[in-house]
């Protein structure tokens, strides 16, 4: 392809090709501080392409492709190329990664122990993780995916650039150096989006595993509430939150039963981020 770059996030080396220069330049700016190994063969390939040659210039729209393709994925206009790249990278990992059990969950770590938060988009798991990751003792492991090593049950980080959405943008932007923020992508199909580069120490520590110590299933909105969750329900919820549980066979089954048995789990709801962080810190202190 005309333009390409390589990005390593956690254990995954991406090769990203594009028909346009802009999305690659935007990615390289966003991922400038990540470690680079230009010689390392890719684990996952992403393609950003024009469906017809003239669509490179005429109302350019970015189609998402790569090792795995979703047939009905809608293209995005070129100014949203960064979002297209993010979606394409997520897709390749979600559908292609087999080394670890992949949880659609955010995670932060402290003292070698991990807090894992699983929930639908809108649950606030990304925002909570991003805010915790800015506040001192926590290391951001990832806002979207958390990997579980079937061999020993450890959690591994996937600290891609955090995808802040809508209200969370202002909330987080107020606390961080503007140099760590990507461009504002307004009015995307997912609302307003702005990327946040994790702290340098989180990126430097991205290969360090952490022991799962607490599982939370957050829900944004309503009164503050904490509900302990049984092993069975946590198991069911996490099979639904995993994109590759079925593909891992018995290794996935063993990893997941171990995770829910060894890790206390709670459903929490919270009216705002401050209350959410308060609940998290409280539960962490008891875990």
């Amino acid at each position: 392809m005309r333009h390409e770059t390589r990005i390593a996030v956690g254990p995954v080396q991406f090769r990203i090709g594009s028909d346009w220069a802009e999305p690659i330049a935007a990615l390289e700016r966003l991922y400038a501080v990540y470690p680079k190994d230009g010689m390392r063969p890719a684990d996952a390939t992403v393609r950003l392409f024009a469906a017809r040659p003239w669509r490179r210039w005429l109302r350019p729209s970015v189609h998402i492709g790569g090792d795995f393709v979703v047939p009905d994925a809608l293209p995005l206009p070129l100014p949203m190329g960064l979002l297209a790249a993010e979606m394409a990278m997520n897709l390749q990992v979600a559908l292609g990664w087999r080394r670890h059990m992949l949880l659609h969950a955010s995670a932060v770590a402290r003292d070698g122990r991990a807090l894992i938060m699983s929930g639908e988009s809108g649950s606030g798991k990304s925002t909570l993780a991003a805010l915790l990751g800015e506040g001192g003792d926590w290391r951001l492991m990832g806002d979207e995916f958390t990997l579980i090593d079937p061999a020993d049950g450890d959690a591994l980080a996937f600290p891609r650039a955090v995808s802040l959405k809508n209200e969370a943008i202002a909330e987080v932007a107020a606390r961080v150096d503007a140099a760590r923020l990507g461009p504002l992508l307004a009015g995307t199909p997912k609302g307003d989006i702005r990327h946040l580069v994790p702290r340098a120490d989180a990126i430097a520590a991205m290969h360090e595993p952490a022991r799962p110590a607490l599982l939370l299933f957050p829900r944004f909105g309503g009164e503050s509430a904490v509900e302990p969750m049984g092993e069975g329900e946590a198991f069911v919820r996490l099979t639904e939150a995993s994109t590759n549980y079925v593909a891992l066979g018995e290794a996935g089954f063993a990893a997941l039963t171990r995770l829910v048995r060894e890790t206390p789990a709670f459903a929490i709801s919270y009216p705002d981020s401050e209350a959410g962080i308060g609940l998290v810190e409280h539960l962490w202190a008891e875990a």
Binding site: G230, E231, G232, E233, F235, V236, T239, Y245, V246, G249, E250, F253, A254, T257, V260, R261
Partner: peptide
């Protein structure tokens, strides 16, 4: 492979690679 998980029991069938709760 049978793993009790609280009120549920998770059964993994090695022949089908399916999990049954």
């Amino acid at each position: 492979r049978i793993e009790p998980l609280g009120e549920l029991t998770a059964l993994f069938d090695r022949r089908s690679m399916q999990t049954h709760l």
